[in-house]
Simulated scan of single mutants.
Amino acid sequence: MKLSTKQKQYLKGLAHSLKPVVQLGNNGLTEGVVAEIDQALSHHELIKVKIPTEDKQEKQLIADAIVRETQGVNVQIIGHTLVLYRPAKEPNIRLPKK
């Protein structure tokens, strides 16, 4: 799924007040964590995931793996936080037109 700049800006605004739903631990990205993220996306559509690493490349690789495994969309990475979006079967979030 591809989002326009306008849609990403809208989602960033919605995500601003959200708290991280999932936080990666010392074990990194495990199957259990991916399942938890997938379930949270199914329930909330828009979530924040905390990625506690200082290495920018590692953070980007983890974010890419999460997006690939969950079929979500990377809205933004800011600091240690990934904002992730995936529309539900019956979407609650109405995106602006492209």
Rank of each mutant, 00 (worst) to 15 (best):
N26Q: 12
M1W: 09
A65W: 15
Q39G: 10
R94Q: 09
L61G: 11
V67W: 00
E69C: 07
S17E: 13
K56P: 06
G72E: 03
K50A: 15
E58H: 05
A15N: 07
T5G: 14
Q7S: 05
L14V: 12
V21W: 12
H43L: 06
K12W: 06
L11D: 00
Q39D: 09
N92H: 12
Q23I: 05
T70L: 10
I47V: 04
K2Q: 15
Q9E: 12
I51G: 01
V34L: 01
L18T: 04
V73T: 11
Q39N: 12
V83E: 02
G25N: 08
K6A: 00
G25A: 09
Q23S: 06
A88Q: 08
Q60W: 14
I78N: 08
T5E: 13
N92R: 10
G13V: 10
A40E: 02
G13R: 13
G72Y: 00
G32Q: 05
L95P: 05
T30D: 05
G32A: 06
V21H: 13
P91I: 09
T70F: 08
V22M: 04
L29M: 05
N27K: 03
Q76G: 07
I47N: 00
E45I: 06
Y85L: 01
L29N: 03
L18Q: 05
I37T: 01
T53M: 13
L95Y: 09
K8C: 14
Y85F: 01
K50M: 09
S42F: 03
T70N: 11
H16Y: 12
P91H: 14
Y85C: 00
D55K: 09
Q60T: 14
N26T: 14
T70R: 07
L61D: 14
G79A: 10
V33M: 10
I77Q: 02
V67Y: 01
I62A: 05
Q71T: 08
T53R: 08
L11H: 01
P96L: 11
E90C: 06
K59S: 01
K59R: 03
K56W: 07
P91T: 07
T5F: 11
P96D: 11
I37N: 00
G28E: 02
T30K: 10
A35N: 12
G25I: 12
N27T: 00
G79L: 13
K89T: 15
E69S: 08
L61K: 14
R86D: 04
D55L: 12
H43N: 09
Q7E: 05
E58I: 07
K8F: 15
Q71K: 15
P52W: 03
I37F: 01
